[in-house]
Each structure stands twice: as C-alpha cells, then as structure tokens.
C-alpha cells in the first residue's frame, strides 16, 4: 500500500517524524523519573512492610509496624 500511496489521487508525500528536542526532553524526564523512582523506591523499601521490595507499595499496619531485618 505504501507503494500505492504516492500514486493515489490527492496523495501527498508523508513526512516521517524526526527525534527532536521534545524527544530529548522526554528522554531526560524519563531518566530523571527513573532516578527518582529508584531513589524513592529505595527509601520506600526501607519503610515497606517486611522490608521487601515486593511490598513496597503496601501500607504498614499502624498497630503493628514491621520493618523486617534492620542493620
């Protein structure tokens, strides 16, 4: 069909998007977000129930705080 695109009436030549500044900014944002996720994740793991990464998004029971193994 791409072979026919240029032959169809009214067809114009499509212009492919090129990586631009926004791409770079998004890349930077992703990188920063990734770094933030990593840093916050490490802190969240410290206060997560049981100290387990799998429960990093779980909330502690106020009546029974479990920090897992602590150094």
């Amino acid at each position: 069909m791409s072979q026919l695109g240029m032959q169809m009436p009214g067809a114009q030549r499509s212009r492919k998007a090129q990586p631009n500044a926004y791409t770079a900014m998004m890349l930077g944002a992703c990188v920063v977000l990734a770094v933030a996720v990593v840093l916050v994740g490490r802190s969240a793991v410290m206060v997560a129930p049981g100290g387990e990464m799998a429960k990093v998004l779980n909330l502690q029971d106020p009546k029974r705080i479990d920090l897992g193994k602590t150094n």
Binding site: V40, A44, V47, Q60, P62, I65
Partner: peptide, 16 residues
C-alpha cells in the same frame, strides 16, 4: 509509579 511510591513511602513514614 513514582506517585505510588511517594504515597506509600509517605504513609509508611507517618506510621513509622
């Protein structure tokens, strides 16, 4: 993910 981690971290920190 960051928002969830932040919320969880904040809540656990408060509880702690």
């Amino acid at each position: 993910l960051l928002a969830g981690l932040s919320i969880a971290y904040t809540s656990n920190a408060d509880a702690l």
